[in-house]
């Protein structure tokens, strides 16, 4: 069975800075993969290239065995590739509910009226029900992150790319988030999760990969990877957190 999402020898540089140096990555259906790496390692750019907002210099992107390298972001979204942004990108003048309706109606190509109840349920699940009619621009950072997640889920993704959704959350909020993500996984959604909050990743993912200098320098069982010498070197001081 082919991987649900695969990147093949992806390369990207911004001027002299190499952010992807021939990256190969493959995500199996139903798998949850965690990606860690120091700031500037190219994690977010990798998501950009997977979802089509950043064009790679060379290499291929495949979704469910089909090449999608030339497809624009909106088509990839409709295929089932959803993403939450590291810096939340709400439709700030629209209500929270409308934000989710947009994602549900266009990300899954449905009529507006048919998505209303699904969107209401999603807001409930993501803890935004009482803010449904608030302007998204007025939300706190935590709620903006919740909205990112709700919007991504509204597109009915087969693959969900999460970019630092746990950063800045309290312990309790983080536990709720982990439960939600595990829930989404149980429904069969494959996940790639970029995160600095390592314990959240360890609690959720099947596999952990380390991105450094535009390359994966380690990949495998999360607990083994996090204890490896190379990772300890990059994350000196953070290793104790695990």
């Amino acid at each position: 069975m082919p991987a649900i999402l695969a990147l093949e020898s992806i390369a990207k540089r911004f001027g002299a800075v190499v952010v992807a140096d021939g990256i190969d990555l493959s995500l199996n259906e139903g798998e949850a993969l965690g990606i860690i790496g120091p700031n500037g390692a190219g994690k977010t750019t990798l998501f950009g290239m997977a979802t089509g907002t950043v064009k790679p210099d060379s290499g291929k992107v495949l979704f469910a065995g089909k090449e999608i390298t030339a497809l624009p972001p909106e088509s990839r979204c409709r295929l089932g590739l959803a993403r939450s942004f590291q810096i939340p990108q709400p439709f700030s003048g629209m209500t929270v509910f409308e934000n989710v309706v947009v994602a549900a109606a266009f990300g899954n190509n449905e009529r507006e009226k048919t998505v209303y109840s699904r969107c209401a349920d999603l807001l409930e699940r993501c803890g935004l029900a009482d803010k449904a009619n608030k302007r998204a621009g007025g939300l706190t950072l935590l709620d903006r992150k919740r909205l990112e997640l709700a919007r991504a889920l509204a597109t009915k993704p087969r693959v969900l790319l999460l970019d630092e959704v746990a950063g800045g959350l309290t312990e309790h909020e983080c536990t709720t988030l982990i439960a939600l993500i595990k829930d989404v996984r149980a429904e069969g959604v494959s996940i790639i999760w970029i995160e600095h909050v390592v314990h959240a990743l360890l609690a959720t993912v099947d596999r952990l990969a380390v991105l450094h200098g535009g390359k994966f320098i380690a990949s495998g069982d999360p607990h083994t990877v996090i204890k490896s010498a190379e990772v300890a070197e990059i994350y000196m001081g953070i290793a104790a957190d695990a």
Binding site: P72, P73, R83, S92, G93, M94, R151
Partner: peptide
């Protein structure tokens, strides 16, 4: 309206 507020997010949420 989504495009008015955020073009990048609009694209990433399936809007042509």
């Amino acid at each position: 309206t989504a495009i008015r507020d955020n073009e990048v997010a609009a694209q990433s949420n399936g809007i042509d």
